[in-house]
């Protein structure tokens, strides 16, 4: 088991990695006429953290990443969206991991729940049920992205996990 200071350092590295991935992602524009479609690159870090440091450290990393990201690149509105998405995704991924899904299933749950939470927030913001007509598309794209990010997180956990953390 790594020492507490080592864990804190790793948390900081994950937060920085999550921030930069989220920032890079904001430059990727999908040629689809559906607002809110994104890959969820930062999800890779959340999955990695969940597998290497456990749930409580991941909550801290997630809160730091979402807060800093809103301060640096976002707005109060984007903060609400990302917090809702990240919180529900993390809760779901924790449950999925406990239910003995593999890293693919865990990442998939995260991606899908992230989209559901953000759509729900959008519903409260604009109070129009038609927002939910976007959800199936978001879930389909999110499923694909979730499996890919699970694949990447698996490689990363494998490369880093065994020796370093």
């Amino acid at each position: 088991m790594p020492s507490p200071s080592r864990k804190i350092t790793i948390c900081a590295a994950y937060t920085a990695l999550g921030l930069i991935l989220g920032y890079i992602e904001s430059f990727i524009v999908f040629p689809i006429r559906v607002p809110g479609v994104r890959i969820g690159l930062a999800n890779i870090v959340t999955v990695m953290c969940l597998y290497s440091l456990g749930f409580s450290y991941t909550v801290v990393v997630m809160l730091l990443r979402v807060t800093l990201s809103a301060i640096l690149f976002g707005s109060p509105v984007s903060f609400v969206y990302s917090l809702a998405g990240a919180a529900l995704a993390l809760a779901g991924m924790y449950m999925a991991k406990r239910l003995r899904f593999s890293i693919y299933g865990v990442s998939f749950c995260g991606a899908v729940l992230h989209n559901i939470a953000q759509t729900a927030v959008a519903y409260f913001m604009v109070s129009s049920v038609y927002i939910f007509t976007y959800l199936p598309v978001l879930i389909l794209v999110g499923s694909f992205a979730g499996i890919i990010t699970g694949f990447v997180a698996d490689i990363m956990v494998r490369r880093l996990g065994s020796r370093e953390v």
């Binding site: 003995r100 899904f101 593999s102 693919y104 299933g105 199936p136 879930i139 499923s143």
Partner: peptide, 28 residues
């Protein structure tokens, strides 16, 4: 290399099918 287990497959298949079905229902 971790492979998807049976639970993953079932979950992913069910969710993707549900999403595809509701997409068709919503947009037909």
């Amino acid at each position: 290399m971790v492979h998807m287990n049976k639970r993953d497959m079932i979950l992913i298949t069910v969710i993707v099918l549900l999403a595809a079905l509701s997409y068709i229902l919503l947009h037909h």
